[in-house]
Design a protein around this nucleic acid. Structure first.
Lengths: 218, 218
DNA sequence: ATGTGTGAAACTGTTCACAGCA
DNA sequence: TGCTGTGAACAGTTTCACACAT
């Protein structure tokens, strides 16, 4: 079993394998109790060698000549990805994007429970969003403590993003999913994942402007 | 001036430099008419050497001893990123996420004009969203032609994503920004950028579960 | 003195190719 | 035979370090 640190690109692909395996299991007759690296390659768009290399990081699960056992592999991925627990999430920013994220089914389905919605703007306080109510930023530290919130989803305008980050980090949250188009400064022990819609869009415009052939990205 | 193809990671960073430079220009007194690679490094979170390597791909813009001229560099980035033209965009999927994207100011500010909203669901047809009205997928090819749409933003559930893609590609659109949690198959001449919210969230959960120290990603 | 541009080295991730197991 | 797991080759990026321009 691998004990070296897994490459980050590999970690990014694990959720994709997991999704594909769920699909196989769901549509799963007897025929799909095992998968080969080449079938996984076909379903994900990666190469077979890469699939084997990635899965080898999880330990030896494949049987030579037969492939990987679907349920076993899926369970292992689920465990590694922390998908068997429920994560409590704070949503910071109750604007357009924030409210859309709150309603996004994909999160709930994967065990992410939005346990509090916060906004700086006093006009929004008390307004109902989904089953929750928008609260002032000042309440965040207490709610984080009470609800054991581990992840914050940041969906505020760029101008207020760093301020909000200070509050989030100050409250002890160590994982931030940032949708604000801004480069945030966080301490080394805080994990930051940026999802920058404008960058992705500009990347696409760049590809269309400068590149004839495609080069899949993301 | 560089004539080799620019590395994709470099291309992803260009919008970030552009944003930082805009900030400098905006808050810009005389003092900020030039930037050094080390200041840009500080503002972006990259290393100074990387900044110089990236900017060298745009041609020789820096003056040794003095740094880079902010307005000149910003204009060059704007041109390379195709930001001085307006891009017409089709929004496919008028659900929660789609409507939030329609209202997202970041897109409009950067010259992305949503020229049509489409959805498979007949119940949504004719409903107003922003200044537009939801149309059936069948109208997409005609609107793409009439409005010279180059980019499609795909915000439909995973189950319908491939079908929608066929329509989009069939209509001649060669750039897709995909928000559906699905691996799309597209011809080689179509540029696909995936923004998968569930993958980013699971990535964060993985980092929190398995990694003590942070390693900035995105 | 300061800071760019860039060869060369270091590093990281992917692909190749095949030994070995079922 | 079919397919995994992996050493070795390869490819692509980033960092180092410094010659050189201002």
């Amino acid at each position: 079993m691998r004990r070296e640190r897994m490459p980050l690109p590999t970690a990014r692909r694990l959720p994709i394998y997991h999704r594909v395996l769920r699909g196989l299991e769901w549509s799963g007759q007897a025929a799909s109790s095992r998968v080969s690296s080449s079938l996984l390659a076909q379903l994900t768009g990666f190469t077979a060698a890469l699939v084997r290399r990635d899965l080898a990081h999880l330990g030896s699960f494949g049987t030579p000549g037969a492939g990987y056992a679907v349920p076993e592999l899926r369970r292992r991925l689920q465990a590694v990805l922390g998908l068997d627990r429920t994560w409590s999430v704070a949503l910071v920013g109750a604007g357009n994007l924030g409210r859309a994220l709150l309603g996004y089914r994909g999160f709930a389905e994967r065990g992410y429970r939005i346990a509090g919605v916060f906004d700086r703007d006093a006009a929004s306080h008390g307004r109902p969003v989904g089953e929750l109510v928008v609260r002032p930023m000042e309440d965040l530290p207490r709610v984080v403590r009470e609800q054991r919130i581990a992840i914050a989803v940041l969906a505020v305008p760029a101008a207020g993003a760093q301020d909000a980050t200070e509050v989030i980090v100050g409250a002890g949250v160590r994982g931030i999913l940032n949708f604000a188009p801004a480069r945030l400064r966080v301490p080394a022990d805080v994990h930051l994942v940026n999802v920058d819609l404008t960058i992705e869009m500009e990347m696409l415009a760049y590809l269309l402007t400068n590149m004839g052939q495609s080069a899949a990205s993301g």
